[in-house]
């Protein structure tokens, strides 16, 4: 079955292009320390606002920071977002979805009403709200737990962004998983497992879950692009990742004044284009997976 899916996926041109771009994106994120030409935090006030040139490929900004190195390093931020946020929201979605779908009854009502409430807020606005609300608490917490170095590096912002995005992302996944469980738990192979005497927990995990995962994988992979866009929006508005940690959204926010500047316009255009390319690439992979895993519905 996996072989068939891969064959269909590999024949899909846009999906393969997406896969190429995403592979490149992760390679850049992993090898960022070797790809940069300067320290991405180094300020050089003697050389501010220079256009693209040989010593600074994408030029320097108003603080004289090397924009090329910042763009490369931002790939790391985006890569962290693309891994941790889906992982967090999938864990929450699995926990609540399995609980609601398998046990039903009042547990189901409770979980679904909770997800309805979270759904009722406009998504991005809710992320801003959560990010702004939890940030002081998280900073304090991290310091109390003794991770001072962690806090000094500005990694608290990562935790805040990941948590906010995951808290908004899980209800959709929980609903999907619940729906899968509701339809699968009445299938004959589940009854066959009950007749054998398989425990409820094992039925949920070994019989239902593996059969429920296909649409979940499609939804998670299709959602990564949106997650990266959401992080960029947060950082654009200044409530996401903070300097010195770079992010494409933050750079767009910093450099949008250059958009009609004769020599400095690439400072805005390059991070924007890369951001769009990465988001599109993830979306194409999601669509490709959807078609490869559900051939009858496409």
């Amino acid at each position: 079955m996996a072989g068939d899916a891969w064959r269909r996926f590999s024949r899909n041109l846009s999906a393969m292009m997406g896969l190429t771009v995403v592979a490149l994106f992760y390679l850049v994120a992993i090898f960022a320390p070797w790809l940069v030409t300067a320290d991405y935090t180094a300020i050089d006030l003697d050389n501010v606002e220079s256009g693209p040139a040989l010593e600074h490929y994408f030029g320097t900004d108003e603080l004289g920071r090397d924009v090329y190195s910042r763009v490369i390093w931002s790939a790391r931020s985006a890569a962290f977002v693309s891994i941790f946020v889906p992982a967090f929201s999938l864990s929450l979605g699995l926990f609540f979805g399995v609980l609601a779908g398998y046990y039903g009854g009042w547990v189901d009502t409770l979980v679904m009403r909770l997800s309805d409430i979270l759904f009722a807020f406009p998504g991005l606005l809710f992320v801003f709200f959560i990010a702004a609300t939890i940030k002081p608490a998280v900073s304090l917490w991290v310091k109390e737990l003794g991770f001072t170095e962690f806090a000094k590096q500005g990694y608290v912002d990562y935790v805040v962004v990941f948590t906010a995005l995951a808290l908004v992302g899980w209800p959709g996944l929980a609903r999907l998983i619940r729906g899968q469980f509701l339809s699968l738990k009445n299938r004959e192979f589940v009854m066959a497992a009950q007749a054998i005497g398989v425990s409820e927990w094992r039925i949920a995990v070994r019989h239902i879950l593996p059969n429920a995962m296909t649409p979940v994988i499609v939804a998670v992979s299709g959602g990564i692009g949106g997650t990266i866009a959401a992080e960029a929006s947060l950082s654009f508005l200044g409530i996401g990742l903070q300097p010195p940690n770079p992010s494409w959204g933050q750079m767009i926010s910093d450099y949008y004044g250059y958009w009609r500047h004769a020599t400095l316009w690439p400072l805005l255009f390059i991070p924007s284009l890369i951001l769009v390319a990465v988001i599109l690439a993830f979306t194409f992979i999601g669509d490709g997976l959807h078609e490869a895993l559900n051939p009858q519905s496409s």
Partner: peptide, 23 residues
């Protein structure tokens, strides 16, 4: 009850639906 299930088994009608496709 789980122990008792050892003594009593079932063969199902639909051989396509009664086997877990992922096992």
């Amino acid at each position: 009850l789980r122990k008792m299930r050892r003594r009593m088994q079932m063969i199902f009608q639909d051989p396509y639906a009664s086997l877990n496709p992922r096992m």
